[in-house]
Design a protein around this nucleic acid. Structure first.
Lengths: 231, 231
DNA sequence: GATCAACTCGAACGAACGTATGAATTAATT
DNA sequence: AATTAATTCATACGTTCGTTCGAGTTGATC
């Protein structure tokens, strides 16, 4: 697995210079995830980070740039990992077709767990990724969508090979349904204890692996569902 | 179809008293949908509504209460319509089992179109519903979740009858995937023209009916997908 | 150690925020 | 028409916001 992103700061830093910077990014991540970008003030962020208000301006310029960096440092490694996993699957398959479930797993797993990271850090990542898709700010929306354009194309071409007869125009919409299911499912999985109590006793929070498998099952079926006849 | 909600104000009002009130609600709906609750200020709202700043305090008390009312007046009729449609299906079926697609359609259609309303108003409704699920504010989250608790239970019991062997604990998670797919799909359908350009020529924006049918196909397949073996 | 670069700090700025309030106006009731 | 109730208005309040800035401190280089 590719361990470090190229463009965004790693969550763990060594030298003094980056200590303030990553403290701000960590604090911002926590607060943006919970309150949204508009709902989290930079005074909250610097207080949580234990740094001075001027640090934001010095290191990031504006709050919006800070948010972009917070999002990038989680999204970029996830998307790189996704592509690496798909590359590895294709290399191992040696021109034989991949199963759809394998492809979806390569897409889903990096957004849910990250090797070498603790459960808490993975939850933080999930929470932030889920929030990315909820931000109303137009710049952030476009930024996130651009971040996903390449990985989405890469996976679409693999999925089209795995699902014969699926038109690419149909897949476009199904990819959106897939991402919606994944991200909303992530948020609910993280917030399970705060949801209205289900009336039955059967409903439990699956572990991380169980969550992944449920997403894969649901979305694989959806991706390969019959094509509806009217245009 | 049930046309008026009980608890929330109708979008169209007759007497003078409600004119200011509904102007505020309409303006708030537009601005909350676009910018989120935190991103839309009440000065923006009163300016768009053409009323005075004090009107918010007089009619609604606080911004948060205004937001709750804005959300309620769209969510409540949708959910009532959902239940009414399911009731009508079950009455017409006369104890024969419903098809899963029918059930999902009863859930999805009211969130996408509303009889007697124009396309623009339906789009506004979709946009607001989509935003409901994205708001970070805890009060609003709980409010929305409570609004959905009853309708979700009602549909879950119908779906469990339509999909033999599906454990209710599994359905809990699949309902969240369904709602994620629906709401994210709605947002993307509305924003199709602003999305990164798909590289192919096949990808078009389906009409409203085409969107509904795509959601139904994807989610019906997902809801009835095989149960995974490990717990 | 001197110099330059990088960084942190505390304070300030101008603007904006949501909430509150009493006066004025309008509507409803008698 | 007089009285009461409801509503609107303009203003103010206290607070908070994101951004800026120059002084001071620390780090890097020679």
């Amino acid at each position: 697995m590719i361990s470090s992103p190229i463009a965004a700061s790693p969550p763990i830093s060594i030298d003094h210079h980056a200590r303030t910077r990553s403290a701000v990014l960590d604090a911002a991540e926590q607060l943006f995830s919970q309150h949204g970008v508009d709902g989290a003030s930079i005074r909250q962020i610097v207080k949580l980070a234990g740094v001075n208000l001027g640090a934001i301006n010095y290191h990031f310029g504006t709050k919006e740039r800070l948010a972009l960096e917070v999002f990038a440092r989680r999204l970029e490694p996830v998307n790189l990992d996704r592509i690496a996993r798909l590359d590895a699957l294709e290399a191992a398959a040696d021109h034989r077709p991949l199963k759809l479930e394998q492809i979806i797993e390569a897409l889903v797993r990096p957004a849910v767990e990250s090797e070498g990271r603790g459960a808490r850090d993975c939850d933080d990542m999930m929470r932030l990724i889920s929030r990315c898709f909820q931000e109303p700010n137009t710049e952030l929306k476009h930024f996130v969508e651009e971040k996903f354009a390449e990985v989405t194309r890469r996976f679409e071409s693999a999925i089209l090979r795995a699902v014969p007869g699926l038109p690419s125009g149909e897949l476009f919409w199904r990819m959106h349904f897939l991402f919606g299911a994944l991200h909303h499912g992530q948020e609910m999985w993280l917030r399970f204890d705060q949801l209205p109590r289900p009336t039955d006793r059967e409903t439990v929070k699956p572990d991380r692996e169980g969550f992944i498998q449920r997403v894969i099952a649901f979305t694989a079926a959806g991706l390969s569902s019959p094509i509806i006849v009217p245009s």
